[in-house]
């Protein structure tokens, strides 16, 4: 049911690596290190700025993939990857979008399960890729029935 969506891409959305959001995010992980939040530490670092934690892209808006309607309940997050060319810098603008990379089904203990692989990208102001990520979402049979029904 998701197979026909493979290859579809979202619209691109501009995001700012916002100072307050980085602080709130680092704080929620108990990771209030000065490299993330202290301007002086940032300026004196090799990055000349503060940077964001590696899982910060969870915060970004990746746009909407037309026709893809995922429920916000009943999904299982199976796998997550991040690949970075460099750390994210506080204050920079990152353009984000997602692509449906794959969808396949497997028989599991809880019946037929669907695996949806979403690949997401973040580009800097020069259009250069800063990070990519993949998220594998497991869609259980119960949820799939609701979607079809």
């Amino acid at each position: 049911m998701f197979k026909e969506h493979i290859g579809k891409q979202s619209n691109k959305v501009k995001n700012i690596v916002e100072r307050g959001a980085v602080k709130k995010f680092a704080e929620s992980l108990g990771d209030l290190h000065p490299i993330f939040i202290d301007e002086g530490t940032g300026q004196n670092s090799r990055y000349k700025r503060n940077i964001a934690p590696p899982t910060f892209p969870r915060v970004f808006d990746y746009g909407t993939i037309q026709g893809l309607n995922l429920p916000n309940k009943g999904l299982i997050h199976g796998e997550q990857t991040y690949h970075y060319e460099r750390p994210l810098l506080v204050g920079e603008e990152i353009t984000c979008y997602s692509v449906i990379k794959n969808y396949f089904e497997k028989k599991g203990t809880q019946g037929e399960m669907g695996f949806l692989v979403l690949e997401s990208f973040g580009e800097d102001e020069m259009g250069k890729q800063v990070f990519s990520s993949t998220q594998t979402v497991i869609i259980t049979e119960a949820v799939r029935k609701v979607l079809i029904g």
Binding site: L29, G30, D31, H33, I35, F36, S45, R46, Y47, I51, P53, P54, T55, I76, H77, G78, E79, Q80, T81, Y82, H83, Y84, R86, P87
Partner: peptide, 20 residues
């Protein structure tokens, strides 16, 4: 990931792969 936070001056997390 925060196990690596204090090492940002000498490098960075290039790939981070997790299975839940």
């Amino acid at each position: 990931g925060k196990l690596f936070t204090e090492f940002y001056e000498e490098g960075f997390i290039q790939d981070y792969t997790i299975r839940f």
